[in-house]
Amino acid sequence: MGKTDVWQGTLALMILKTLETLGPQHGYGIARRIEQTSGHKLLVNYGTLYPALLKLEQEGYIKSSWGVSDNNRKAKFYQLTRAGRKQVEREAREWNETTAILARFLSPDEA
C-alpha cells in the first residue's frame, strides 16, 4: 500500500511538472518526457500512467482535449489548469523540503 502511494504521488508530481514545462502534451509524450528527464533511469508503467492522468483530471488539476500530434495523428492532449499550476508549486516546495530534511539526515559528519 505505502509503496504504491509514494510512487503514485511522485508520478503525479512528475506528470504535473512535465505539463508545466512542455505545455499541452499527450499521454505517450508525457511518458517519453519523464523517461528522458530521468536519464532513462525510470521506466513509466503505462498501465499506471493513464489511471494517474484520469485521477488528476477528476481532481481538477489537469484537463484534456482531443488534438493533432506532430505526426499528424489524432491524440488526447492534457494541460494544466490553474489549480494544477498551484498544485505543482505546492508539491514541488513540499518535495524540496522533504528531500532537504532527508539530505541532512543522510549526509555524513553534519552533526
Binding site: H26, Y28, N71, R73, A75
Partner: peptide
C-alpha cells in the same frame, strides 16, 4: 470509447517511434 481511442493513439505514437 474515448479511452480506447486514447490508448490506440498511444500505441500508434509508440509504433511510429
Amino acid at each position: 470509447r474515448d479511452f480506447s481511442a486514447e490508448l490506440e493513439a498511444h500505441i500508434q505514437a509508440h509504433t511510429d517511434d
